[in-house]
């Protein structure tokens, strides 16, 4: 039925920078997957500029009550992650215009297991985040050429 193992993912660039370089969960996990191709976005004197730059413009996490029971106790939360990213060449031309990737998961809730639910929330956020990073890798790989 036409399926074959995925081959080596060839990107249209050799070097890439992912901003913000410190302190952002999605950006650092994306850098880990891009491995040796990652370069600093502002190279020290004389360093070469990276071919492309992926900017994680925003990563917002939201936790919204979506279900209450009849006595007003929360029974269900919805966890949302919205990541806004853009990919541009080193001269600043947009290769991928700013776009959003959204992920949502429902998590049940019970007052008596607040600590456990806290740990499960972290598990769900990690799962959503790695799914978003996989989607980012696919979007980056889909860029075929750097020229306009």
């Amino acid at each position: 039925c036409g399926f074959k193992l995925r081959g080596k993912q060839n990107f249209a660039f050799e070097t890439i920078a992912v901003t913000p370089e410190k302190g952002a969960a999605v950006a650092s996990e994306l850098s880990r997957y891009l491995g040796s191709m990652v370069r600093p976005v502002a190279p020290a004197a004389g360093g070469a500029l990276p071919d492309v730059i992926v900017d994680i413009l925003g990563e917002t996490r939201e936790k919204v009550i979506v279900a209450l029971n009849a006595s007003g106790q929360v029974r269900e939360y919805q966890l949302r992650i919205k990541v806004r990213f853009r990919m541009r060449s080193s001269e600043g031309r947009d290769l991928i215009a700013p776009t959003d990737i959204l992920q949502e998961r429902d998590i049940s809730f019970n007052e008596s297991a607040v600590l456990a639910k806290e740990a499960e929330e972290a598990l769900l956020y990690r799962d959503m985040q790695s799914d978003i990073v996989q989607q980012l890798l696919r979007r980056i790989a889909a860029v075929k050429t750097l020229e306009p």
């Binding site: 998961r105 998590i107 049940s108 019970n110 297991a113 456990a116 639910k117 499960e120 598990l123 769900l124 990690r126 799962d127």
Partner: peptide, 9 residues
């Protein structure tokens, strides 16, 4: 400790 929801994660 509590049972986690049954989901893909």
């Amino acid at each position: 400790t509590a049972a986690s929801d049954f989901n893909f994660a």
